[in-house]
Write a protein that binds this DNA or RNA. Structure first.
Length: 502
RNA sequence: GCUCCGUUCGUCUAGUGGUUAGGACGCAAGGUUUUCAUCCUUGUAGCAGGGGUUCGAUUCCCCUACGGAGUACCA
């Protein structure tokens, strides 16, 4: 690779950033870091009517949460700004004029209504209207109108757009880093609008101009852009600019059924489609708020469309950076699997430093109205983290460490509280009372030898005991539980249980 | 409709002109266990179809089917 790699993520601030967009940003980031290059965040806000308040902020916050660091952008600054297209308005006008001058573009005065009528008529005739080499001669533009008429219209400030003059029948050969050679005949393309009548460029013009001016070396974007690649390539050619490399990423598909992943799927099937909660208008749930670790989220997303060619599945961001390569990105759309997302979170629940989880866990415990020392929180987390996918699940696994049973599970009582249970539990209480070093392993040793001496059934004793301590047949190693709650509390729970259950 | 892209277990995917087509999720069955989980082991299931090319195609080519995207004064 010659020169410095410069890539960009160029979202449109029209709402919350979809996880497909996050993945595109992630791959750009990985590619940039891998090649010690630069990642630029460019806001593509040329459509003023679709602007959504809060979207730009959301995009930046989402990337930050994921650990995707931006080198140049509206917030970070840089030598190629401004990084918001709406602030680059004059630039595009200049380049549109250049194309007009060189004959690669022309002014078109047809109104949206006139074109609408044309489209409708073609549709009824079973065809599709295209503004191109076949039709442009019969339409209202600077190619067909006399020069003085054109200058009259512009002088009167009659609105017009600037269209690209797509050559009639030329094979355009393109190279995609993921797909290889792509060939399209320009005859199938139309004269795309480059500059709108409101004085703003369309995506196509702005994108090409900015990528050139910002010296972007690799354009990594979603597959939905592949159909407009020929236009972009032609624009580079029209300007006489060097072509960057292109990579079009496969789409993210919905878990079941047809089509690409949408917000609807998430709502319907109960999983988020966005990284963060979206608080405006029609709200949307987010991975962050649902308790996903950003590491797990990023790991899961990275493997959706890319793989290292090994069996390794767990990657830190640094590992992703060193192992990522565009060549190993797949070509086909990837169905999003919410189950696998949970699995990834489960993995991170096991490998994350215990203090990190304990800190969050302690907060939750305090919200429940109890206080806990950091070392105790860590101890409990270590004890039960294997049983949960999310931090939020930790409370259900540990609530009985803080609260004596409020009730005794009916089915469990029926199954495990037998005729001789009260006698056994009274004996057990006596055994426990006699233990001075009330720690798990010691208690276990004493209790088990007592069970052996009396020839009781371990299952019968332990389950009845668990019922008295927890109220239900669940939870970690019972001796660990009573070790934690202490001798006094243990004895109290036995007494209370005996009172209730008889 | 037209243009472009794609197609290996249900899902994410590895892979090769000759392999017992590998891994992971899920699911199932065992095992561990005082419970519930976890965990471990095993199993389950796939090269879309049809033509070529070839001694031999899952792999290369073509066609079909299916899926996806695009087809706006949206990005």
């Amino acid at each position: 690779m010659t020169g410095t790699v410069r890539v960009r993520f160029a979202p449109s601030p029209t709402g919350p950033l979809h996880i497909g967009g996050v993945r595109t940003a992630l791959y750009n980031y990985l590619f940039a870091r891998k090649h010690k290059g630069t990642l630029i965040l460019r806001i593509e806000d040329t459509d003023r009517s679709r602007l959504v308040e809060g979207a730009e902020q959301y995009i930046m916050e989402a990337l930050e949460w994921c650990g995707i660091l931006i080198d140049e952008g509206v917030r970070e600054g840089g030598n190629y700004g401004p990084y918001r297209q709406s602030e680059r308005k004059e630039i595009y006008g200049k380049y549109a004029a250049e194309l007009l001058e060189s004959g690669w573009a022309y002014m078109a005065f047809d109104t949206p209504e006139e074109l609408g009528i044309l489209r409708k008529a073609h549709e009824e005739g079973g065809s599709v209207f295209m503004y191109n080499a076949q039709t442009r001669d019969r339409l209202k533009n600077s190619l067909t109108l006399p020069a003085d008429e054109v200058s009259r219209l512009t002088a009167e400030e009659i609105p017009y757009v600037i269209r690209f003059k797509m050559p009639a029948g030329e094979d355009i050969e393109m190279q995609d880093m993921i797909r290889g050679k792509v060939l399209v005949n320009s005859g199938t393309l139309d004269d795309k609008i480059l500059y709108k009548s409101d004085g703003m460029p369309t995506y196509h013009l702005a994108n090409v101009v900015d990528d050139h001016l910002m010296e972007i070396t690799h354009i990594i974007r979603g597959e939905e852009w592949l159909p407009s690649l020929p236009l972009h390539v032609m624009l580079y050619r029209a300007f006489g600019w060097d072509l960057p490399s292109f990579a079009h990423l496969p789409l993210l598909l919905k878990p079941t059924g047809k089509g690409k992943l949408s917000k609807r799927d998430g709502d319907k099937m109960g999983f988020p489609v966005f990284p963060l909660f979206w608080p405006y208008g029609e709200t949307a749930r987010g991975y962050r708020e649902e308790g996903y670790f950003p590491e797990a989220f990023v790991n899961m997303l990275a493997l959706l469309g890319w793989n290292p060619g090994t069996d390794k599945e767990l990657f830190s961001m640094d590992e992703l950076i060193s192992e990522f390569s565009i060549e190993r990105v797949g070509r086909s759309g990837a169905r999003f699997d919410p189950e696998k997302a949970r699995w990834f979170n489960h993995q991170y629940m096991q490998i994350k430093p215990v203090e990190d989880i304990a800190r969050e866990y302690a907060k939750m415990v305090e919200e429940k109205g109890y206080s806990i020392k950091p070392e105790d929180a860590a101890r409990l987390v270590e004890m039960v983290r294997g049983r949960v996918d999310f931090i939020s699940g930790l409370w259900y696994q540990t609530n009985f460490f803080f609260e004596a049973p409020q009730f005794y599970d009916e089915a469990a009582v029926k199954k495990r509280w037998k005729e001789d249970s009260p006698v056994q539990m009274k004996e057990l209480k006596a055994v426990l009372e006699g233990i001075s070093s009330f720690i798990s392993s010691d208690i276990e040793e004493r209790v088990k030898s007592w069970i052996r001496e009396r020839d009781y059934g371990t299952g019968a004793v332990m389950n009845a005991f668990r019922l008295l301590i927890v109220g239900e047949l669940r939870g970690p190693h019972l001796f660990d539980i009573i070790d934690f709650i202490g001798k006094e509390e243990t004895l109290e729970r036995i007494d209370r249980g005996l009172e209730v259950l008889g």
